[in-house]
């Protein structure tokens, strides 16, 4: 048991405070055993904290953080069921980016249209264009 109504400096510690203090000392002992007190103390140095701040606080992160409420709001709008297919699409597009591409004229375009994959892609693109147009119409009416 701890003494009741302990005085530390000008602060009087009542029974509840004493109980908290005992728990806190227990926690400190555990942190010390694990060597975490030393680690935390080392981490809280000017160099480490300054280095971390330099890494994390830049114009880009501050701009992004400033919009974090809007960004997280957008997350609610995402159709998560379509994410897998979107993922496939993104990796297909990324590999196309690294493939060599040739300039194509009108005749080349007409010949390409015989390729069933190109036709499927075109159908999809038209769908996307339609959705973009619909959304723009909404935004302009606002």
């Amino acid at each position: 048991m701890v003494a009741r109504n302990l005085e530390v400096g000008s602060v009087r510690i009542d029974e509840e405070g004493a109980e908290a203090l005992v728990k806190f000392v227990g926690l400190l002992k555990r942190l010390n055993e694990l060597g975490l007190l030393d680690a935390v103390s080392d981490i809280l140095s000017e160099d480490v904290v300054g280095g971390l701040a330099g890494l994390l606080l830049n114009t880009g992160t501050l701009k992004a953080l400033d919009n974090v409420d809007r960004l997280t709001g957008l997350l609610g709008e995402v159709d998560y069921d379509s994410l897998d297919r979107l993922g496939d699409l993104i990796s297909a597009v990324s590999s196309a980016v690294t493939e060599e591409s040739k300039p194509v004229g009108l005749i080349g375009l007409a010949t390409s249209l015989r390729d069933p994959d190109i036709r499927r892609g075109l159908g999809f693109t038209l769908n996307v264009l339609k959705a973009v147009g619909r959304s723009l119409r909404g935004a302009q009416q606002d």
Binding site: V49, N58, D66
Partner: peptide
């Protein structure tokens, strides 16, 4: 102030008026 100096410095550098002006603000 010595401990906080580098943290504030990083913030002030990230939000330099010249940089923000170029980006159209913050």
């Amino acid at each position: 102030p010595g401990f906080w100096g580098p943290v504030f410095e990083a913030y002030f550098r990230a939000t330099e008026p010249e940089v923000l002006e170029r980006l159209g603000g913050w």
